[in-house]
């Protein structure tokens, strides 16, 4: 087995657009769950809406900035539609409504009735909406190597996308860091602990939960845009498993920490690519086919999630002491 090649693959994937997209989505989910205690089971829905918002508006002729705004706007509207009716209800209703709503978005997106706009289940090919983003790149069209990683400068899975993506992640982390340490973040943490107590102190809990839902959803949408800029918009590629992976990433890194989601995403994709590559190299192809190796990878993800909760519920960066206190 070629370990050098394997490690290069791991490095490429860890720093790649998928890891960036999931990091952004997990940062959003962290605002929902880690900070406010909202159980959003439909983060993939926010990502998908962001992706559709960006791609459809670009295809319709919108400039890059407007396409980004449309993506963000779609997430804001989605969050309001979900939050306005459900955030007054018991917490588990939000979980059911968000997971249902994300599925509705996916089913409607892939429906034959909307083939004209969303491309139905075949989706929208990358080339139909990537041009404005790639044209905005100051880099020359070329292939550059950095260490062992060689990538195109502008096309699809490119240096340009990585630069923009990691800048977004950095900004998002700074933003969350500032908010967590502000009185606003304090109110959210109070809501996570006991929303009735916070209400009794004169805070409009409903409004804060709505703000958190919208804000986290916007990061989800940005993640969705990065996700599809590397490939294509396809409803089924942003389904329920994506939400579940995002949860795994958040819990792996550590909920309620600023850098947890980013670290979680890096490790998640690094480990997944490593395991797959290792199995492919170590097990002959006639014993396990390529698809089967991939499936084993996903089985391991599920088991990791279970083991995490059992053995290290605070994640890598979380504070064990904080978690040990049973919120009464």
């Amino acid at each position: 087995m070629d370990f050098g090649q394997l490690l290069t693959n791991v490095l490429t994937e860890m720093t790649g657009p998928t890891a960036i997209a999931y990091a952004l989505a997990a940062i959003g989910l962290n605002i929902h769950f880690g900070l406010t205690g909202l159980i959003n089971m439909g983060q993939a829905g926010f990502m998908l809406l962001g992706a559709y918002g960006f791609a459809v508006s670009t295809i319709a002729g919108a400039p890059l900035w407007l396409a980004f705004l449309v993506a963000i706007g779609a997430a804001v509207v989605f969050a309001l539609i979900l939050g306005l009716p459900t955030l007054k209800l018991r917490g588990d209703y939000l979980a059911i409504v968000t997971i249902a709503a994300a599925e509705i978005v996916r089913m409607v997106g892939r429906s034959t009735a909307l083939t004209e706009i969303t491309g139905g289940s075949e989706g929208l090919t990358g080339n139909s909406f990537k041009s404005t983003f790639q044209d905005a790149s100051p880099l020359p069209d070329d292939r550059w190597a950095l260490g062992p990683v060689t990538l195109a400068t502008n096309a699809s899975n490119s240096w340009w996308l990585r630069i923009v993506g990691w800048t977004l992640v950095l900004l998002a982390c700074l933003f969350v860091w500032r908010l967590v340490r502000s009185p606003w973040g304090r109110v959210l943490r109070g809501i996570r602990e006991d929303e009735d107590a916070v209400r009794a102190l004169g805070k409009n809990v409903y409004s804060y939960k709505l703000q958190a839902l919208v804000l986290g959803g916007v990061f989800g949408a940005l993640g969705g845009v990065v996700f599809v800029l590397a490939s294509s918009v396809q409803a089924d590629s942003l389904g329920r498993p994506v939400t579940f992976n995002t949860w795994t990433i958040l819990l792996l890194g550590g909920a309620a920490t600023v850098l947890g989601p980013v670290l979680g995403s890096l490790l998640f994709w690094g480990a997944l690519v490593f395991v797959r590559g290792f199995l492919r190299g170590a097990v002959p192809a006639d014993v396990l086919s390529v698809q089967q190796v991939e499936q084993i990878g996903w089985v391991l993800v599920g088991i990791t999630l279970i083991l995490l909760i059992v053995f290290r519920p605070q994640g890598i960066l979380g504070d064990k002491k904080e978690l040990a206190i049973n919120a009464r």
Binding site: R189, G190, E193, D194, A327
Partner: peptide, 16 residues
């Protein structure tokens, strides 16, 4: 049933 915000410090509780 007291609603102390368990995973926040005493001072943070007060500031809230």
């Amino acid at each position: 049933l007291t609603k102390a915000l368990a995973r926040m410090t005493v001072l943070e509780n007060m500031r809230l």
